[in-house]
Write a protein that binds this DNA or RNA. Structure first.
Lengths: 149, 149
DNA sequence: GGTGGTCATCAACTAAAGTTGATGACGAGA
DNA sequence: TCTCGTCATCAACTTTAGTTGATGACCACC
């Protein structure tokens, strides 16, 4: 795995990313690469989204580098990666903070319903929540310390 | 917020997602919605990717629902979200959590403090917070609907 | 009512993504 | 060397995303 777009890729073309997926993340027993016909057939069957071998070829060779959403979905689904993998490197950097934040939320153990509610809330609402959390935490800490003493 | 971003998240169309972004995540002072011409101009200027107002309109109204990668990149970059937001619902929900988290972390150090407090909190405390969020969101929804009427 | 400006909507066009079928290069037997 | 099969490559076609310019609805303001 000399080149690894999965970790610290920087200026890799879409073609390179897709090539890497095919070489390194082929499912079904992590089988090594295939020919384009077989690749297309496997993806089509696995995802239900029809993809021709020529499309695979164009993407691998950079003949086209602007696939449509349904194509991206099919690839992402097949290789088990998020669509964001195909995003810009700029964006990868920008989302790093979000990924960190999301792991925080994961640790925090908020349930799905609450998260979803949080998403649709106004900024003011979120501020309210933030204040609530802080005072709740402060209360909790104070109570614990009181018990210790 | 005509279209409920949170409730029927499972079958949220691309159009609804984009509409939600425009209504709820418009940058530049979180200004309320715009007309399509202004929206397109702002996105074009901010991202360097030319987008016509008709394209925005088609996406908002569902007249087209299969945008190309460069369009997705422009939208994601402009709204400060990962491209995965446009993916399937599982993935969208995951990234929605990231978006929420980033909103929490976003502006004030106060919010960062809230997240940290959340991590330290007991399970019971977190449950309390989750319930608080859900009812706050419900209240907010009710208030919005009342104002609309 | 009339006039003017704004803006969503649409029809017609362009560009390019994706498909289909053909071709030719290449390797493996015989 | 000849033949056969495989497969990347390509050209021609279809489809549709995205653009451009026009139209008419709507809302002021007079």
């Amino acid at each position: 795995m000399a080149d690894d777009p999965g970790t610290a890729n920087s200026t890799r073309s879409l073609a390179a990313k897709i090539e890497w997926l095919i070489q390194n993340r082929w499912p079904a027993g992590s089988r090594p690469p295939k020919n384009n016909v077989e690749a297309a057939a496997a993806i089509s069957e696995a995802t239900g989204e029809e993809l021709s071998s020529t499309t695979i070829w164009k993407l691998r060779t950079g003949r086209s580098d602007n696939p449509q959403l349904k194509t991206l979905k099919a690839l992402a689904s097949f290789f088990g990666i998020p669509i964001g993998y195909f995003g810009d490197d700029d964006e990868a950097e920008a989302t790093a903070a979000q990924v960190a934040a999301s792991s925080l939320v994961g640790e925090a153990g908020l349930n799905r319903e609450a998260l979803r509610a949080l998403v649709e809330m106004s900024d003011g609402g979120r501020q309210l929540v933030a204040d609530f959390i802080i005072s709740a935490a402060r209360l909790e800490r104070g109570r614990d310390q009181a018990e210790e003493a």
